[in-house]
Nucleic acid binder design. Structure first.
Lengths: 233, 233
DNA sequence: TTATCCTGGTCATCAGATGACCTGTTGACT
DNA sequence: AGTCAACAGGTCATCTGATGACCAGGATAA
């Protein structure tokens, strides 16, 4: 026998949904100010706390912005308001990290093909800069990790797809921790490996400069294989 | 002249951070029960509302679960707790949709290669079922759209990467609306196009059955090209 | 043993009060 | 006219006491 769920939604969720619908249906446009908490409280006939919690959850979703002393406003939003909720990396196990890495690989390989074709002169300069910094800072793990991250981010930017940049950044964050640890380890036990990383980055850069998508993809593929080996020892 | 921001963080954010740190530092393990709101209110020496808002924001992040009448618990989490916040699709413009589609293409092409290799017998059955439903329900746009979605989701599942499934689902959601609209349109104006979609799906299925990654990828690529054309008229 | 009731602990929500903060206005001073 | 302090009105931020809803587990009755 099937029963219909009577799940009574929590009050603030109902309110949040109602307001969200208004935004979706364009009854509330970006930039508009919502009524004050007191007002809404009366309109929806619920307490102020319920309204407040509803607004807070919408703010967490990025739909609205609450400004102390001013009011609550509908946000203007675009694809870079898409966010990925990643629990802290310390809570992941090896298998999770592997899954994440697999996805990064997909995105990164896709992005570099586009980047090689679409890259501008500016992008090249940025890449050069990152490359240079990384080489300079071989001993400063913090700085070289950041430059590494910047290198990859810049490639994503060159692909001219903002959403892709956002996703790669989010996906790479938990990996970045792992990578930095690995860098520290390598510097102590296996300096030539760092040298290899740099060569791979350089190869990637050259392929992008030549706008050779295929070569770039292969270079990136080799690079990721190296990194993967280093992480999953 | 540069000035340092004196941003004083809101109370509940400080509390939320404090508790999050405890979880990250493993002082609070998954399954543990947090102190009651009253208790925490005393411990942190802030009002109950601040505690409550902090807990709500952590719940939104997926780190904890608040159970009415029982208490608040640290969640066990894994990669499928990674969520992607997508504003409602109606708020996107054409360019945004194009970016999203580009990413979907990347993920989908990557996933199908893995799926073709890793697919189990069960996965094949599911795919058959989705395929069948889609064909049956040519006139029921709702049902056929769902079957379409199921078809792609099942492929992701076959790739044996839970995170990938999650991401693809989230990414495809805003596209699904567009696609359904398109389906309705096609049914009225261009029935053969629906036929073509079905053939493409079938081709994808066959390649997966043969575990031919390359062919599967090509079939999917053709399919996505078709869909893209249909969406961006 | 099993079903029912009771109780203590907890979250959900409300409403009043106070403080902090922002904007715009007014009026004095330069 | 331009600058600035002071003020007022509106709004969010937070605290607090009160009440209801909900759950788990123990006590009780059939």
């Amino acid at each position: 026998m099937q029963y219909k769920k009577i799940k009574q939604k929590k009050l603030y969720e109902q309110v949040a949904d109602a307001i969200e619908q208004q935004i979706i249906k364009k009854k509330l446009l970006p930039g508009d100010r919502l009524d004050s908490v007191e007002q809404l409280s009366k309109s929806y006939d619920v307490g102020r706390s319920a309204i407040r919690e509803a607004l807070m959850s919408l703010q967490a979703k990025g739909l609205i912005e609450i400004r102390h002393g001013e009011g609550t406003f509908v946000r203007h939003l675009s694809t870079d308001d898409i966010t990925i909720q990643m629990p802290p990396s310390s809570l992941f196990n090896k298998k999770d990290i592997k899954e994440i890495f697999e996805i990064r690989e997909l995105l990164e390989l896709g992005v570099i093909e586009k980047a090689a074709v679409r890259r501008s002169q500016d992008d090249l300069l940025c890449l050069q800069h990152a490359l240079h910094t990384m080489n300079e800072a071989l001993t400063d793990h913090q700085a070289s990790s950041e430059a590494d991250f910047l290198f990859h981010t810049t490639i994503a930017k060159a692909a001219d797809n903002q959403l892709l940049v956002t996703m790669l950044e989010h996906i790479s964050k938990p990996l970045a921790d792992q990578i930095q640890q690995t860098r520290v380890l390598l510097a102590a036990t296996n300096p030539p490996a760092l040298e290899q990383l740099h060569k791979e980055h350089a190869a990637i850069y050259e392929a992008i400069e030549k706008q050779d998508g295929k070569a770039a993809k292969e270079a990136m593929s080799r690079h990721l294989a190296t990194v993967e080996k280093m992480i999953f020892i």
